[in-house]
Design a protein around this nucleic acid. Structure first.
Lengths: 145, 145
DNA sequence: GTTGAAAGCGTGGTGAC
DNA sequence: GTCACCACGCTTTCAAC
């Protein structure tokens, strides 16, 4: 796992179907050397697979997304927050953060109504004082990680 | 966008590097027919790209995450923003939003140094006036969707 | 252990139907 | 949508570092 491996991963993140030869000339290696490194990364479990990125709107119509900042009273218990957030299906990702807010939550739902319901469930959680939401107008990037 | 297209998307989700001929025999089509369908899905924006799935922890340990708000001067060009953001491997997801900021970007990198580099690339983009970052202290939820 | 070069062959990409 | 074509790139082998 050296700098070349990391460069290969970055290049493959941008284009997962890039040819070995093309990757090779961008990192200064031959095609066969590139393939061996990628195979090794797959065997080690660093690379778990290759996939296609699909626009979520294409399958179930245009949904609604929002980023919600959580402001809590007193101390924040990460464990309790995690249990609460995991119980809300609309939560795509979440984490405690630095800055004014205590945590940020990425929500995705099929319509505004479902979004409001999810928001209300977040607000009901223990220690949550108030929230600040930003609705997503247009999604620019979404990588499945 | 029929049942065959959906089956192709499902197969590509499992293996994004599958050959056209292999895909063809699994959906009952020829290789060139498959390629035309995939090209059409890409042109229509249903397929936004191909990428590699990397185990975040296996790569270089826990890593660092951050949410970055982008504040732009004057009008925001979503297309230009999208091109810029897609070129930065550290970008997990991003979208234009309501509220004070114009856009929010979810970043993940292997260490603070790489995070700073990615941040600098965001700031260099046209019309970006300044940014406000919140570093993730502990990841609470992450669903691969 | 790693790599690069060459040969054979499978596959992608394109055009005609 | 299929079939046929050609060129390119992948895969493998082998020798060398």
């Amino acid at each position: 796992m050296d700098a070349t491996d990391r460069r290969l991963l970055d290049l493959l993140r941008v284009d997962g179907r890039a040819g070995w030869a093309e990757l090779g000339e961008r990192v200064g290696l031959s095609a066969s050397a590139v393939r061996r490194r990628v195979d090794r990364l797959s065997a080690r479990g660093v690379i778990t697979g290759f996939t296609v990125q699909v626009d979520p709107d294409a399958e179930t119509g245009p949904g609604v997304e929002a980023y919600v900042e959580l402001f809590c009273r007193g101390t924040v218990a990460p464990g309790e927050l995690q249990r609460m957030l995991s119980a809300v299906p609309e939560v795509v990702s979440a984490g405690t953060i630095t800055g004014e807010a205590d945590a940020i939550v990425h929500l995705r739902s099929r319509d505004v109504r479902a979004l409001e319901d999810a928001l209300e469930r977040l607000r009901m959680a223990a220690n949550v004082d108030h929230t600040r939401s930003a609705v997503v107008l247009s999604r620019l990037v979404h990588r499945s990680a």
